[in-house]
Amino acid sequence: MTAEEILTKMQASFPGLVKAEVPVKEYPTWTVPAESVHAVFERLRSKFAFDYLDVVTAIDWSGPVDPKGYQQTPAVPPAARPAVPATAKDIFELVYIVTSLSTGLRLCVRCELPRKEGASIPSLYNLYHAADWQEREVYDMFGIHFEGHPNLKRILTQEGIQGWPLRKDYAHVPDKFD
């Protein structure tokens, strides 16, 4: 069964599931509304043997990056920051890549979230344990909450860090170690 056929079968029960406009190169890429993420993966896992979760990550589309890198000081006033280009959207995008070990098919599933404090999405921990730490990492880096995750704590960053480092508007406050 090809990814196209799976998509057609899935679309019967998930009307929000569509092909992505900008695909991840050489991967069948779908977009799915946030509320049906868990159900889509449950179906993919049980019916189509997508048993191996490769990647969980996120993108902050609020761009841009300063060409010299990210802002080092919080003292830069908003007016002095580079202008927001037309491509910038006020959303987070979750990216999941799943593999089926038996059929060898690979899929990329993406999901958009409004970019705000306390943005949340259902956790895939009970389907794939591999999501455990990857979701914790996404939470640590972007501040996206995963509902139903058993242990959603910051994982990599040091204690007492303010803000979410991989958000585009993260401004690093120099401390005694800098």
């Binding site: 991840v24 490769d54 990647v55 990550t57 993108i59 902050d60 761009g63 841009p64 990056v65 060409p67 890198g69 491509t87 990216v95 890549i97 591999a130 730490w133 990857q134 990492e137 991989l166």
Partner: peptide, 23 residues
């Protein structure tokens, strides 16, 4: 794995590393 996102600029817009040791 490396997940690369470009916005047409000089720098990668986003680069995610799927580190096998991490998982």
């Amino acid at each position: 794995g490396f997940f690369a996102v470009s916005d047409g600029g000089l720098n990668p817009y986003r680069m995610h590393v799927r580190g096998p040791s991490f998982i």
